[in-house]
Design a protein around this nucleic acid. Structure first.
Length: 580
RNA sequence: GCCCCUGUAGCUCAGUUGGAUAGAGCAUGGGAUUUCUAAUCCCAGGGUCGCAGGUUCGAGUCCUGCCAGGGGCGCCA
């Protein structure tokens, strides 16, 4: 959606602006700028379509009773074309009833708009999204899916809103693990196995080397020496390191292709190596860093944070230094308005520390840590070292297998090739949706049944709704050849179709809020709600058998629903097969 | 010991940043199909929002304390 926006504001934004004007006109002597005068959708349709709660919060400032404030607004506010009725309920709720005719015209406008009524809120702004970021030489497992899938949804959502997005895969391609890997590789690796299945072999080597380091001090020292050699540019170690990265990237790319994830930049930690000494020098020059126990730290006592370590006592640098160098590099090169990191909850303190250090360096770019709950197994956490990981490939395979069984059962007439294609989209969609429909910050315990749910609030339900609509459109063309739905106006006569129309028009508001709050689950919730409204509409109202005019209006609502669902699912990285 | 997060129906989870009678899905019970894809729809039961105080017109949401679980706390990332 790169076209110029037709709609400069959403419905909530339009109504909120109206309420601002109304309050300013009715109470010109009081400054209400600090109050939240925004309009939101009602929680219950019986109250109306949208509501404004400002009268109650303004009451104290105005030294009036909340109901009197509301009454004054109702008495004196000019109703815009969109509003049919404004009334008061309870302690002072202002309930807004939109004109059905206005809604219908708006729906027609949205249908004609390539951007589905979504304003380009991010036009001219740049955001760098740092997500996925797996460690080289380790397999991608179910713990990586959250960062990848959530990050990619945020990526797509921001692009849709007109942002210039730079998705950067900040690979873990530098650090202590390479000492273990290099020595381990020379000692334990099987070249044939490495050729055949590089990551698996590297994983085996890593675990063996790690285990030995725990019981063999000499081994541990030797791995450190290999790391130092690598960092000093030793050609042999360098060559091995490059080989690890190359093989890992090939494997990662295969999974990213499978997941439909693309990055604009793949710059690992090693990309910033040359800048690390300069970062530390800068911190020292500004008097921010000081020596402590042989290491160099930035004290953050005023911020009530523990110190941030920027250089180890052995002279090596660690991740805080790398992250600072990365921010400095990114701001210099791309001038972003925001940099967003998507990682698990364990890194909260680290980001607080390193954001604070960035502020002390005078950096003003918005820095945002979007964290999500760590994925656990029912029996506890998992790790490569423990060897109890569930690999991402296996999860995706299992998803497709389960979906295929259902496709074969419900669509036996479909050609096998197409069944597999549908099962692929449905299975992957189910896995992604299971993650995206949840508040990112909630704790997640992995179970197969939960991750692969194919019924209820799940991607297949939404995909099914899309497939039904495609079928409706086919039937329409078949039975009414030459019929042109858009030649007829949209009407919202029945309450069920009015509800559907109202929900369709909320898309832009939901998308903006979900992106602003970095919460794809708000979009997922909305899509499910929309699909439920559609299913109810589909089940309870005839359209192909309705009279001309009503029929076309309903077919248009179907078409707009399909586009909204497709667009929304696409923003979540979920495909919608034409048929299921 | 200190800091962060989580606690909502039998289970899995939402809850638009303080709004109206706390909502979905799964599971359970009942109903709907000669007609647009039944992976559907309609209806019902099911709640001390961890516990106790506080703030105010109004608290699942904010503040304090406690309980339970998870995570973190300078040389891993």
């Amino acid at each position: 959606m790169s076209e110029t926006a037709v709609f400069s504001e959403t419905i909530e934004q339009g109504l909120s602006a109206w309420m601002h004007r109304a309050f300013a006109e009715v109470f010109p002597e009081t400054d209400l700028a600090a109050l939240p005068l925004n309009v939101v959708a009602t929680t219950d349709a019986t109250f109306g379509d949208y509501q404004c709660n400002a009268a109650m919060s303004a009451a104290k400032l105005l030294k009036m009773k909340p109901r009197d404030v509301a009454q004054a607004v109702v008495d004196r506010a000019q109703l815009p074309d969109s509003v049919a009725k404004l009334d008061i309920a309870g302690p002072g709720f202002l309930n807004i009833h939109l004109s059905s005719d206005w809604l219908a015209r708006r729906l027609e406008g949205v249908q004609a708009d390539a951007r589905l009524g979504v304003p380009a809120a991010g036009q001219g702004k740049t955001v760098i999204l740092d997500y996925s970021s797996p460690n080289v030489a380790k397999p991608m497992h179910i713990g990586h899916i959250r960062s990848t899938v959530i990050g990619n949804a945020l990526d797509r959502m921001h692009r849709c809103l007109g942002w210039r997005v730079l998705a950067d895969n900040h690979l873990g391609d530098w650090g202590t693990q390479f000492g273990l890997l290099i020595l381990g590789f020379r000692t334990f690796a099987d070249p044939a196995a490495y050729e055949a299945s590089p990551i698996e072999e590297l994983e085996r080597v890593y675990v063996a080397s790690y285990n030995r380091s725990k019981e063999d001090e000499a081994w541990k020292t030797a791995t450190r020496a290999e790391l130092v050699k690598l960092q000093q540019g030793d050609p042999d170690n360098r060559k091995l390191w490059e080989s690890f990265i190359e093989h890992s990237l090939r494997e990662f790319d295969r999974i990213y292709t499978r997941l439909g994830v693309k990055f604009d930049l793949v710059r690992g930690e090693s990309y910033y190596n040359a800048q690390l000494a300069g970062v530390v020098a800068l911190l020292q020059a500004q008097g921010l860093a000081e020596e402590s126990e042989g290491a160099l730290i930035v004290k953050l006592e005023a911020e009530k944070l523990t110190p941030c370590l920027v250089r180890k006592s052995d002279g090596g640098y660690n991740y805080a230094t790398t992250d600072i160098a990365t921010v400095l590099g990114r701001t210099a090169e791309f001038k972003p308005d925001a940099i967003v990191y998507v990682t698990d909850e364990r890194q909260q303190l680290h980001f607080k520390q390193f954001f604070t250090v960035c502020r002390k360096l005078g950096l003003t770019t918005k820095l945002q840590h979007v964290w999500f709950g760590l994925m656990r197994l029912p029996e506890g956490t998992f790790s490569t070292r423990e060897g109890n990981v569930i690999k991402l490939d296996r999860l995706l395979d299992e998803a497709e297998t389960r979906a295929l069984a259902i496709v074969q059962q419900t669509s036996p007439a479909m050609p096998p090739e197409q069944q597999r294609e549908v099962a692929r989209a449905v299975g992957l969609g189910a896995v992604k949706y299971a993650d995206l429909s949840q508040n990112p910050q909630s704790l997640v315990t992995f179970t197969w049944d939960k991750a692969l749910a194919l019924d209820g609030n799940s991607a297949p339900y939404l995909q099914y709704a899309c497939a039904r609509i495609a079928s409706v459109q086919d039937k329409y063309r078949e039975r009414f050849p030459g019929g042109e739905p858009t030649a007829h106006p949209i009407r919202l006569a029945d309450p069920i179709e009015r509800t559907l129309g109202l929900k369709l028009l909320r898309f832009a508001d939901v998308l903006e809020r979900a992106a602003e709050q970095f919460r794809p689950n708000q979009l997922a919730d909305y899509l499910f709600d929309l699909a439920q409204s559609y299913s109810s509409f589909y089940q309870n109202l005839p359209f192909l058998k309705a009279e001309e005019g009503v029929r076309e209006s309903r077919v248009r609502l179907c078409a707009l629903t399909a586009r909204t669902l497709r667009c929304g699912l696409d923003l979540l990285g979920i495909e919608t097969p034409a048929r299921i």
